[in-house]
Amino acid sequence: MHRSVAVAVGVATAALLVGCGSGSAGEAPAPPSKSGTSVSSGADGSFDVEAALENADPAPYSAEVRTETYAGSTLTVVMTGRMNFNASSPTGRLTAAASDSVPKDQAFEAETILLEDATNTRTVGGDGAAGEWRRTGRGSSGAEVADYGAYAQLLLDLGPKARKGPEEVNGIRTYRLSGEVTQDRLRTVDRRLYDRMRATGTKEFACEVWVDEAGRVVRFEQRLEVSGDAARNVVTLKGFRGPVTVSAPE
């Protein structure tokens, strides 16, 4: 596999699949918070992002997830699926595949089913034929899930400089947070990425999070260098509704 593609795949599996912390089921742009009140908005579309995160409904829900991984400016890996959040452990079904920019001899596709106690993964050949499912314990697989809500809190902790203000994302009113996440701050939030950063000597990375009025992270961007190569992850979440059933493969 070409180095740039290998790096992108490593970034995608090491740092990408992320839960969006607290949030609620349903499609309403500003559903009631857990305290029973909605977050108020200003005339410029701004709202108290800290209150939105704090008051987000803890009820389980699902969301469509799309992750794009770039090596430099080239899209190399796309991961899509639907995930359940706000349960004891995120679950769902995901498909990762090389983009059209990747040479055919380096292309790949893989399916993953995340259960509460295990991860099931199989590869899909160019002819559409699927391989055998491989089962591993949660935490031992590359397709583990971190918490984007925790990333949002990390950025809030940086103070006023991280608060960039209101922005619209796919027609949704959001608040953008932006800053540098250092290795030491990441330790208790995303241990897998923390360990990878230590192994590669990466001290920090740029991170941006867009939070909606319901306290859900609807977009996440991460820019970092892995072994000297620039990489960028872009995650979008939409289609919020109730949890979906996820079963082990037959």
Rank of each mutant, 00 (worst) to 15 (best):
A6R: 13
A6F: 12
C20E: 05
C20K: 05
S22Y: 06
S35K: 12
G42Y: 04
F47I: 01
N55E: 03
S62P: 04
V65N: 03
V65I: 11
R66G: 04
T67G: 12
T69V: 14
A71W: 01
V78F: 00
V78C: 01
N86K: 02
S88I: 02
S88M: 07
S89I: 05
P90Q: 00
T91Q: 00
G92V: 02
L94Y: 01
V102S: 07
Q106L: 13
E116N: 06
D117R: 11
D117W: 07
T119C: 14
T123W: 11
A143I: 05
V145K: 02
A146Y: 05
A150C: 02
A152F: 00
L158Y: 11
G159Q: 15
K161C: 10
G165L: 06
R176H: 10
L177S: 12
T182H: 10
Q183M: 07
Q183R: 14
R185P: 06
V189F: 01
D190I: 00
L193V: 03
R198D: 05
E204Y: 10
F205W: 08
A206R: 15
E208F: 08
V209T: 08
V209E: 08
W210R: 05
R219A: 01
E221N: 13
L224G: 08
E225H: 11
V226Y: 00
S227V: 14
D229A: 15
D229C: 08
A231S: 09
V234T: 09
V235L: 10
G239T: 05
A248P: 12
P249Y: 12
